[in-house]
Amino acid sequence: MRKGLFDFGPALGYFFRKNDPNRQTNFNLRTMHFINKLSMAMFLVGLCVVLYRLFTR
């Protein structure tokens, strides 16, 4: 079994990292990152709902 299969550190770091002042940003990049974070959050909420329904039946 692969050692890093369930390593969620990079995914959680994506949510909680600070802005890099040396990196130039624009509207498109900020929008892309917002949509990525929103879609991951919606997926996690949906996964929690599915698991809740699975274990409460």
Rank of each mutant, 00 (worst) to 15 (best):
M42D: 00
L38S: 13
M40F: 07
M1N: 14
F27Q: 06
M40E: 07
P21S: 14
K3M: 11
R2Y: 15
A41I: 06
N26D: 15
F15I: 15
N36A: 11
V50M: 04
M32H: 10
G9H: 14
R53N: 00
G4Y: 11
F8H: 05
F16A: 07
G13P: 04
P10N: 06
P10R: 06
M1A: 14
P10Q: 11
T25E: 07
R53S: 03
F15K: 11
R23H: 01
N26A: 05
Q24G: 06
Y52W: 07
L38G: 07
R2A: 15
F6P: 04
C48N: 00
G4P: 12
R30D: 12
I35F: 07
K37I: 12
R57T: 06
R17W: 09
R2P: 15
R53M: 00
M32S: 12
G46C: 03
V45S: 03
R53K: 05
R57E: 04
N36T: 14
H33V: 11
L38E: 04
F8L: 11
Y14N: 11
L54T: 01
V49P: 01
R57Q: 03
R23P: 02
T31A: 09
L12W: 05
F8I: 08
A11E: 14
L51Q: 06
N19K: 15
N36E: 11
M32D: 11
R53E: 07
I35P: 02
D20V: 08
L44T: 08
F6W: 12
K37E: 13
K18M: 08
T31W: 09
Y52C: 00
R2Q: 15
F43S: 06
A41C: 00
M42F: 04
V45P: 02
C48D: 01
G13I: 02
V49T: 04
N36D: 13
D20L: 10
H33L: 13
R30N: 14
L51Y: 01
L54R: 00
R57N: 02
L5G: 12
V49D: 03
A11H: 04
T56S: 02
M1V: 14
A11R: 10
V49R: 06
P10W: 10
Q24P: 03
K3F: 09
F34G: 10
K18P: 03
T56P: 04
F6N: 11
K37A: 13
H33C: 08
K37M: 13
T31I: 05
F15R: 08
K3S: 14
T31L: 12
L38H: 07
N36F: 09
